[in-house]
Design a binder for these strands. Structure first.
Lengths: 218, 218
DNA sequence: GATCGGTTTGACCACTCGGTTAAAGCCTGC
DNA sequence: GCAGGCTTTAACCGAGTGGTCAAACCGATC
């Protein structure tokens, strides 16, 4: 159990992971070559393969780090509801989940691009994406199922897609509309606050509509 | 003006463009190499450069073909409203635009992936994407401006993003949720019909909410 | 001091990439 | 037939890729 074996355990490995993350953010999926990552991390190229086996695997580790972080935040939020005095209303729970989602993306700006890239790029790491997307879906739709039917125009599955699209698509599309549309940066604090308010308004409006048409159930 | 110069004018050029399109659909942006395109088109690799100058330019032509097709459909729809008896209600016009959008994506399944790829991939053709996205935004938001304020939680710009996200994101995310969620393929006729109904319901619901809170304007 | 195992290194490999080029093919007008 | 101009071809290029490997390094144990 010799702990202070060398410098710090896995220092180089972590540097490589961080370099890959940073490069991904700057140059995108294309620009993440073993050489570029190694140079960025100040490390020999062979170390990338020594620690991660392949560039693909390295990339997958970066992805997974984001996914597990996101998943843990959501799980913690759900756990909070469960421990609460047992009657947190559905709307409040949904708002909570959405705030967690928005907070996470705002603090990890790369995340939205990374996920969208994988989903739309026909990337080879789709199994990872599928697994996490499915988990998020299960959590959210189990909430929505309390009010929404399983199928039809206002079903839980449709609502889930619309809500998550409303959150994540903003970060990839809004910046492209141009600064004049947002009177400045689409990712400025003011613009982000407006989007957050919009999504919450969206949830409230749709839930109200659901409640109104619930009696006739369709 | 010698027309029947050789076989068919631009036959090879068209074959290359189509091959690039097909490869893009199957393998994604990564898999579109000059060699692969040429082989797919049954053509010498040098011809790719003879006709298109560079692989980048070839890719841009594919993108542009989709964008102009989409743009023309939208423009035609808008033109139709303008010629109509002068009082097509806003909701109906919005539903019309959305149907055009959905029809186009359903008949050009690659389109959604292609656009999302460019937007999120930090691709080098962002200027193309920006130009068209901006045009679509201007058209849609000019309609929405009749009912929605320019800023705030229910502003035209926010609604535009939410509507377009609801349309386009379905095609990239829904298939990942798994066949059991959709009782079959998420892109089957039945599933697509449910999504279409959902989006129209979404529009109606939000417009109704807008109308209800219009008096106090915020 | 010798040894041993995990770590680090630079040199090297086969391969693919986008792109070029000079020559050949081929069709048309004379 | 021949001249001239698009079109098509095979061969080639330099650069960059992911990945390997044997040797060197280096800290800990005996």
């Amino acid at each position: 159990m010799a702990r202070p074996k060398k410098k710090v355990e896995g220092e180089r490995a972590a540097a490589i992971l961080d370099a890959a993350d940073a490069l991904l953010a700057e140059v995108g999926y294309e620009g993440i070559s073993a050489r570029a990552v190694a140079e960025r991390a100040g490390v020999n190229k062979a170390l990338v393969f020594y620690y991660y086996g392949s560039v693909e695997n390295l990339f997958e580790r970066v992805l997974e780090r984001y996914y597990t972080a996101h998943g843990e935040l959501l799980a913690r939020a759900l756990e909070g509801f469960r421990r609460a005095p047992d009657d947190v209303p559905l709307a409040e729970r949904l708002h909570g989940l959405i705030d967690v989602y928005l907070d996470f993306i705002e603090h990890n700006r790369l995340y939205a691009r990374l996920v969208q890239q994988q989903v739309s790029g026909g990337g080879m790491h789709l199994h990872l994406v599928e697994r996490h997307l499915r988990a998020f879906y299960d959590w959210t739709s189990s909430l929505l199922a309390e009010m929404a039917p399983a199928t039809g125009r206002a079903s839980a599955r449709q609502l889930y897609l619309t809500f998550s699209a409303a959150v994540i698509n903003y970060f990839t599309y809004a910046p492209l509309l141009g600064d004049d549309v947002w009177e400045g940066d689409a990712l400025s604090a003011a613009a982000l606050a407006e989007r957050r308010a919009h999504v919450h308004w969206l949830v409230d409006t749709l839930l109200a509509a659901l409640a109104a048409e619930k009696p006739d159930a369709r």
